[in-house]
């Protein structure tokens, strides 16, 4: 069956000449050719008939675009496509281990192309409608309930950790240093190591009977480097714009909006906690965090930087906490 699909998909190739200006690193990638739509080379297309899934037949002498349409039809007609897409969407947006019923509700929205919640209707009624599917993912009771279930949540993948911290702290980045940090955390974001992306959807989380896709690239070294990224961005101050490049932004946060809370270390920690994960820290962890933030004052930072130091220390601890790293 796999070979039938391979034969049906013959005849497509890269656009002439290659369109990308991006240099081709690391070795073995083919980026010069990866921009632009693929084109048909009819002489390379296999014109024999092919029997695909769902009873779909590619007739003899079909063109490459006709065969491609039939390949997509055969997949869309397969009963597994709804649950497959539903599970992947939920894993990426809400939880690594959704209940079968939740997967079933999202699959139904995908299959019918329709979903409604609180009297609001989503979707056009066409199978595969993404508006209906994503609404079903995000508005499901399992996604919105305040009651915590042991199996819920997902580990933020490195790139969402980087961008989440930057956005929360009104930061900006032109991508400088992001490749390096991505590499150190096994997610050089635009360069997955293979067609299987950075991590598998079924990676087992040791010590549990659950899966955690993002745990496929999380490990001892990654745990340390998540903190090192925060240290780089907050304590060391990130990367300033490069004056040689007029559009350079560097990679920096803007703590201005938080300085007004800095005089009260507890209020600052609570404000950042609510921003980062929607609740304040329990007293057992809030107290030492507040102590670390309170260390900075006019005596310990006599150059007038103590408010900034407080925001940096508080953000380091809040965004480095498991409360933030594992999204509930």
């Amino acid at each position: 069956m796999v070979r039938e699909y391979a034969f049906a998909l013959t005849g497509w190739t890269f656009p002439h000449g290659g369109l990308s200006q991006v240099p081709c690193l690391p070795l073995g990638t083919n980026c010069k050719w990866l921009e632009g739509d693929m084109i048909v080379l009819s002489s390379f297309h296999d014109t024999r008939p092919h029997a695909l899934l769902s009873g779909v037949q590619v007739p003899a002498n079909s063109t490459a675009p006709q065969a491609l349409e039939l390949v997509l039809d055969s997949i869309m007609a397969h009963p597994n496509i709804g649950p497959f897409v539903a599970r992947r969407m939920i894993q990426n947006f809400v939880s690594s281990n959704p209940s079968p019923a939740y997967v079933g509700r999202v699959a139904a929205a995908f299959d019918t192309g329709a979903f409604s919640s609180d009297g609001v209707a989503f979707g056009t009624g066409t199978k595969g409608d993404m508006q209906a599917t994503i609404a079903a993912v995000l508005l499901d009771a399992e996604a919105r309930s305040q009651a915590v279930v042991r199996s819920q949540g997902f580990l933020r993948e490195p790139i969402l950790f980087f961008t989440g911290v930057l956005r929360s702290l009104n930061g900006k980045s032109d991508g400088s240093q992001m490749g390096q940090w991505g590499t150190m955390l096994a997610e050089d974001v635009f360069r997955p190591p293979s067609v299987f992306d950075f991590y598998p959807p079924d990676y087992p989380v040791a010590g549990t009977d659950l899966v955690g896709p993002q745990f496929g690239i999380h490990n001892t070294n990654g745990a340390l480097n998540r903190l090192n990224f925060l240290n780089y961005l907050l304590i060391e101050g990130g990367t300033p714009p490069n004056p040689k490049h007029p559009d350079s932004l560097g990679t920096l946060i803007d703590d201005t909006a938080f300085l007004s809370s800095a005089s009260d270390a507890g209020a600052l920690v609570d404000r950042l906690s609510l921003l980062a994960f929607g609740h304040t820290l329990p007293s057992g962890t809030r107290t030492p965090v507040v102590d670390a933030v309170s260390y900075w004052n006019e005596t310990t930072a006599p150059d007038g930087a103590w408010q900034h130091k407080r925001v940096d220390a508080a953000a380091y601890l809040v965004f480095g906490s498991p409360d933030y790293q594992v999204q509930r």
Binding site: S96, R150, T208, A223
Partner: peptide, 8 residues
């Protein structure tokens, strides 16, 4: 509160 965070 969740097992994945304990693993983390």
């Amino acid at each position: 509160d969740v097992a994945l965070a304990d693993a983390y």
